[in-house]
Amino acid sequence: MITETFGESVIGASHVRAGTICQDSHKIVQRGNATVFAVADGHGSAAAEFSNDGSGLAVDVFCTLMEGFIERYQLDTHMTTSPALVTYLNREGQTKVARTITEEWRALVLKTHMDLHREIITNDNGDVDDAAILKKYGTTLLGMLVANDFFFAFQLGDGDIMRVDENGIEPIIQADKLLGVETHSMSKIDGGTRSAGKAYAWESSFTKFMRINRQEGLPYAYFLTTDGFANSYASEEDFHKALLAYYAVLNQHGIRVLSENLAKWLSETSADGCGDDVTMVVCYNS
């Protein structure tokens, strides 16, 4: 089976009118048999003035951490994954791995903020207020590591991770959907435990580990989209129909044609849809 991955992030129509920049980011890393890809949607609210940086750092962190697994367990060359990694991701994916992703992002954001000599925010005691700085970089993060015989998916905040094949469409992760324009965020304050009234960012994340049987030989695709895509359709059903139609294009024309048209299609989606930035990454297995 051949795995090809492609993605685009386009600035939203409303952001074009406003003269602001695209706050979405995406990243793809192909290493032999293994592929890592991620999308992130910077909040763009006034309180998150550096969220374009936040989303860029988020996809970087996810891809870097997953590349660590690829190197250590030679996922790029091995056809069968080490039982040790399978066990680890199964047992610790939702806890240690998710926590590492959010904590690495947090550390990278704070370092970036200092390196760029941006305003240091302090609390009443004069200490650096990490939470206030992190809030300025607020973003979502969705990512997948796809190896020869498994995938690992991570989602924190809104957006969609879907699998499509000839039999239909299904969500890889069924994450919390918040109404309106609110979302869970990588910038959630790490202040203690949920039972103590505070929550870690990673506690709002969802992960999934699943075995893949490529011997079946049927094509399929993973789609990662920021919420600007789904919000440009009237209903969940219409959103699903849209991804099925994109999948049909993949099957009929291949990923090259999709890559030549995707930016234009996503811009049209934003202009005639919700106006938000839109990102789509497609991992096509044919």
Binding site: G12, S187, C274
Partner: peptide
């Protein structure tokens, strides 16, 4: 405009 905000905000 449909920008998002963290639920924390």
């Amino acid at each position: 405009a449909p920008a998002s905000r963290s639920i924390e905000e």
